[in-house]
Design a protein around this nucleic acid. Structure first.
Length: 648
DNA sequence: ATGCAATGCGCG
DNA sequence: AAAGCGCGCATTGCAT
């Protein structure tokens, strides 16, 4: 086959076949930038070429022709959300079989960089038929729309071909590794994310302007106060200049190296790598180690400046309707969580700021007015926000996976697990100790060591050991479960979640991280199933229910006011997915007009209806079975090890 | 000029 | 074992 410029009507010849497509655009903003052409590769139809488009009419023609690909077509794209956005295509509605090769790569090995050239190098290597191997031009004509047409043709045609070959190579790999159920699930998820990104989140512009001006004013006052205290003007954003001003200029003692021995010499493994920086100006060191009033001032200054900058960022990312279209990336994490960027809607400062000392809770403060940045995100007129999150989701997942008796009994009784632990360990369940428990529980489950615990708690080794022992008594399955995860990983060089997803690790030294992966990623796959079912239900309402944001254990919807309460109850029930583990993931529901001001909604129980298909459920039960067989082997192995130790 | 590492901090 | 885990982003400062 020869590549070259072809007529757009060639698209139709690919209908019902397996076809790879690749768009070239003037940028990444689908709500603003334009398509400049499409590459297509379909060996079954002997179609391989590039279709440039130069005006509105041609772009619309391209979109229409692409939409005419029949439901029997398998459409392959590398990062499908991007192309679908520009083509205004929802693959679910067209009935296509969708293969996204970035997701294929991610499921095979989440550590691999997804860039097409990298995936090609790793999975196609010398077998690659790629003809165009030069780097794209740099410098003056470095944008695709500035290239000569013949270069664009070669480049785009080859991307389409490589995408096709990558899919052909990786599909059998997914099959061999029993990853097809989770792949199919992720393609459903991806289609929903297209809608989420297109809908976007409305920004309250008057608020952002007011807040921005107020923050910048406070920032300059705080900076002046800092300069006055130091008796010098400098760039406070520079760690070098700031540490010089406070440690040298004011003669404040540098923070003590917590890892140094009594003689002050750091004999830790990484002493020479400068991991511990005595010139550090982090808030923790300034406030807790240096214990100087300037610590508070610098912390406020940094927070104020960062919030102001964040507001500016949101403004530049908004479209002409003041809506931000964040990207929710399916392939952004090792564990299977989503990541969010441009803007990141998963790290918007919350309205309650915890005060932490080395991650240990010492109280909390409200962020109000211009400091409560979540107020910038609001529902559209006539609608309300509905935020549904899971209560103690990771602890629940730990209990389910490890079958820890304390966790499970607390689960079944519907008690507050962190309060229970605080009670067991400290004899009190007040807010501070409950938060301590929360932090330490996760630490221990994820393999925190005694040394780190005493450092974090600022307790003696004896006290830290006592607390640890209490924890291990409270959760008798923490230690065995951690060992089993490592044993399983040693055997397989991967861990498999309940969903069938694989987390790979070959280095024994890092296998302890698999415990976190299995919990964190297991929760992520629960959320994805909940999202798929919820979105399906929302579409069925036909009254403009939208999903706006996904934050690891939380979905944020936008619901017409008149349907709010009923939909809230229905969606929170759907999200509990009780059929997956025969235990509901209990949810917490909040409603409001802005992300910064949400109020609890007492849930009414509505009679259960099955909203999801039997085949969907069966796919997951299959994945679960695979996972449990691999788990059983490791359990027996650890039991044998423990038995052998006890016999000694 | 451009890229990368280090630092710091927001979220779950 | 500085070995609690997973992210994105702004900024500085040095290297290429």
């Amino acid at each position: 086959m020869e590549m070259g410029i072809i007529s757009r009507s060639k698209i139709l010849e690919c209908s019902g076949k397996k076809v790879a497509i690749d768009l070239e655009t003037t940028g990444l903003k689908f709500w603003d930038n334009k398509i400049i052409g499409m590459g297509i590769y379909c060996p079954d139809a002997e179609v391989w070429g590039y279709m440039p488009v130069e005006n509105y009419k041609e772009i619309e023609d391209l979109k229409n022709l692409t939409r005419q690909l029949s439901p029997e077509t398998t459409v392959i794209m590398h990062n499908a959300k991007f192309d679908c956005h520009f083509l205004r295509i929802q693959p679910r509605e067209l009935g296509w079989t969708l293969w996204d090769t970035t997701v294929m790569v991610h499921l095979v090995d989440s550590r691999v960089r997804k860039a097409l050239t990298n995936a090609e190098h790793i999975y196609l290597g010398s077998d690659s038929k790629r003809g165009y191997q030069e780097e794209p031009p740099r410098g003056k004509k470095n944008k695709v729309w500035e290239w000569d047409l013949d270069l664009t043709v070669k480049y785009c045609c080859n991307d389409a071909l490589v995408t096709y070959d990558l899919a052909e190579k990786l599909y059998p790999v997914l099959e061999e590794n029993l990853l097809l159920p989770v792949f199919v699930k992720d393609m459903f998820y991806l289609c929903d994310l297209i809608d989420v990104e297109e809908t976007g989140f409305l920004v309250n512009i008057p608020y952002t302007h007011r807040a921005h001006d107020a923050l910048r004013e406070t920032e300059s006052k705080l900076a002046e106060a800092l300069y006055d205290s130091c008796g010098a003007r400098f760039n406070w954003r520079s760690h070098k200049q700031l540490s010089n001003a406070i440690y040298e200029g004011l003669g404040i003692a540098r923070p003590v190296n917590p890892f140094a021995d009594a003689d002050g010499v750091d004999r830790s493994k990484f002493a020479d790598k400068g991991k511990y920086n005595s010139a550090s100006t982090s808030t923790f060191l300034l406030m807790e180690k240096v214990k100087h009033p300037l610590g508070e001032l610098i912390a406020s200054l940094r927070e104020t400046a960062k919030l102001a900058k964040t507001l500016e960022r949101w403004a530049t990312l908004s479209d002409e309707n003041n809506v931000v279209h964040s990207s929710f990336n399916l392939t952004g994490t090792r564990t299977g969580r989503l990541s969010s960027s441009k803007p990141n809607l998963q790290n918007v400062p919350s309205s309650v700021r915890g005060r932490f000392t080395q991650s240990v809770y010492t109280g909390s403060m409200e962020r109000t007015e211009e400091y409560n940045l979540r107020k910038a995100f609001i529902s559209r007129p006539g609608k309300s926000l509905l935020a549904i999150d899971y209560k103690q989701m990771e602890m629940r997942m730990f209990g389910i996976l490890s079958e820890d008796p304390f966790m499970l009994s607390s689960l079944y009784a519907g008690r507050d697990i962190h309060g229970d632990i605080a009670e067991a360990v400290w004899g009190t369940r007040d807010k501070v100790h409950r938060e301590w428990s929360k932090t330490i529980s996760f630490g221990l489950i994820y393999g925190m060591t005694l040394g780190t615990l005493m450092y974090r708690l600022n307790k003696s080794k004896y006290e830290a050991k006592k607390i640890t022992e209490k924890y291990y008594q409270t959760f008798p399955r923490i230690q065995p479960w951690l060992l089993e995860r490592i044993a399983q990983c040693e055997d397989y060089l991967y861990l498999r979640y309940w969903s069938g997803r694989i987390w790979r690790e070959e280095d024994r030294d890092y296998m302890y991280r698999g415990a976190n992966a299995q919990i964190q990623g297991g929760c992520a796959d629960i959320l994805s199933v909940a999202e798929i079912r919820s979105a399906k239900w929302c579409r069925k309402q036909g009254t403009d229910h939208n999903l706006l944001n996904l934050v690891h254990d939380e979905l944020i919807f936008e619901i017409p006011d008149e349907h709010l309460v009923r939909s809230a109850n229905k969606l929170s029930e759907l999200m509990q997915v009780p059929d997956i583990f025969n235990i509901p993931f209990v949810t917490d529901t909040k409603i409001g007009k802005s992300y910064g001001e949400l109020y609890p909604l007492d849930s009414e129980v509505i009679a259960s209806e099955q909203e999801f298909s039997q085949s969907e459920l069966e796919a997951f039960l299959l994945a679960s079975e695979i996972a449990s067989e691999e788990r059983r082997v490791s359990q027996e192995k650890v039991q044998a090890q423990v038995q052998a130790q006890e016999n000694n």
